[in-house]
């Protein structure tokens, strides 16, 4: 019986192979008010999946549901089916293990009130790395990738929470990378970062694609075009369209609203 069950599961996973995230009929409510309704989409392994759309489209709520952040907000209710590597994350008993495999960066940067070094070393420490030399390597690599290393390498002992907004944003990215996540979710990461740095981080993201899957929520349509392999357009709590980024941006959209949004007619 048990064996049989396992076989079935293996089969479903087989069909879901290269699917990193598989979201079916996802609805999110806050105190009964819908924020996201009936979204079905999948994210393939090692792709950059872009999500664009105006404010209040439910983009951020979508990311929150993927990281089980409903547990922090008592009035947030999630319905539907979210599978990570084929595993239903809402059946997970050890959500800490789940969250450690998903890195998130939200638009409001949070530099923890620890030293810059400890900000980045925290996740590796939590996963059991104690060797100082090993931590040094991780810290440098992650800060380098987040385009922050040059600015802070001489003051790794100062507080991360006292950095400027833009620096904290990059520190947050470095922290997410330090988890060595399988999926990296970025929510409007460039909001407090200057254009030059943004381009540097975008280059890093392109490189990272070979190591992890990236979900990129952005309010900059052109950023999605530059980075995303496929892009979804969210509008008023619905996923209007999902398509190949190249197709969407070359006028081959299925829905008129997507076309209008991309062309900047609203949003």
């Amino acid at each position: 019986m048990v064996v049989a069950a396992k076989t079935t599961e293996a089969v479903t996973q087989n069909t879901a192979q290269s699917l990193k995230l598989d979201v079916r009929n996802l609805s999110i409510h806050y105190s009964g008010i819908p924020a996201l309704e009936n979204v079905t989409l999948d994210v393939r392994e090692n792709e950059i999946f872009g999500i664009i759309g105006p404010a209040n489209a439910g983009k951020t709520s979508f990311l929150k549901a993927l990281n089980r952040m409903d547990m922090f907000t008592s009035n947030m209710k999630v319905q539907g089916d979210i599978r990570f590597n084929g595993y239903d994350i809402y059946k997970s008993r050890n959500i800490y293990a789940l969250r450690s495999r998903i890195g998130v960066v939200f638009p409001l940067p949070v530099g923890l009130p620890l030293t810059i070094y400890e900000n980045v070393a925290l996740a590796p420490r939590l996963s059991g790395i104690r060797n100082k030399a090993e931590l040094d390597v991780i810290v440098e690599r992650c800060l380098e990738r987040a385009a922050l290393w040059d600015e802070v390498k001489d003051r790794l002992d100062s507080l991360g929470s006292l950095l400027s907004g833009g620096q904290q944003q990059r520190l947050t990215i470095a922290r997410a990378l330090s988890q060595e996540p399988e999926v990296l979710m970025l929510d409007e990461f460039s909001i407090a970062v200057d254009p030059v740095t943004t381009m540097r981080i975008e280059d890093v993201l392109k490189e990272l694609k070979s190591e992890m899957t990236i979900v990129l929520v952005t309010n900059l349509v052109q950023q999605a075009r530059r980075l995303a392999d496929r892009t979804a357009f969210f509008l008023e709590g619905r996923c209007v369209e999902i398509g190949d980024t190249e197709e969407l941006f070359t006028g081959r959209t299925k829905e008129q609203s997507t076309q209008d949004y991309i062309e900047g007619k609203f949003g």
């Binding site: 800490y96 789940l98 969250r99 495999r101 890195g103 949070v110 923890l112 939590l126 922290r175």
Partner: peptide
């Protein structure tokens, strides 16, 4: 007095 955002940032990294 420790802001909630710090806790959430930590939880998001998989900290218990």
């Amino acid at each position: 007095a420790v802001p909630k955002a710090f806790r959430e940032a930590c939880w998001n990294m998989g900290a218990t």
